[in-house]
């Protein structure tokens, strides 16, 4: 299945901004972050289709996955 993976801020360094990835059924966000060598503490805020997700959330066909490091502002 295909899903869109988006990285932001420091997570882009040496990786990518957006990538369409071919994933096996049952893939979680954690599988992605491990593959991309992103430490757990750096994958602080996660969204699937604009809704907050967790590292163990399952990714489904066509999902839009966003991974942010800890950020703040305002």
């Amino acid at each position: 299945m295909k899903a869109k993976i988006k990285l932001f801020a420091t997570l882009r360094n040496g990786r990518f901004d957006v990538a369409e990835m071919d994933l096996a059924e049952g893939t979680t966000i954690l599988n992605i972050t491990e593959q991309l060598e992103i430490e757990k503490k750096d994958a602080a805020i996660l969204f699937i289709n604009g809704v907050h997700a967790e590292l163990d959330s399952l990714i489904r066909e066509g999902d839009d996955v966003a991974i942010f490091p800890p950020v703040g502002g305002g």
Binding site: K6, F47, G50, H52, F68, G73
Partner: peptide, 10 residues
């Protein structure tokens, strides 16, 4: 402004 992407995503 690091917030633009995350608030947009939300």
């Amino acid at each position: 402004n690091v917030l633009v992407n995350i608030i947009n995503e939300s």
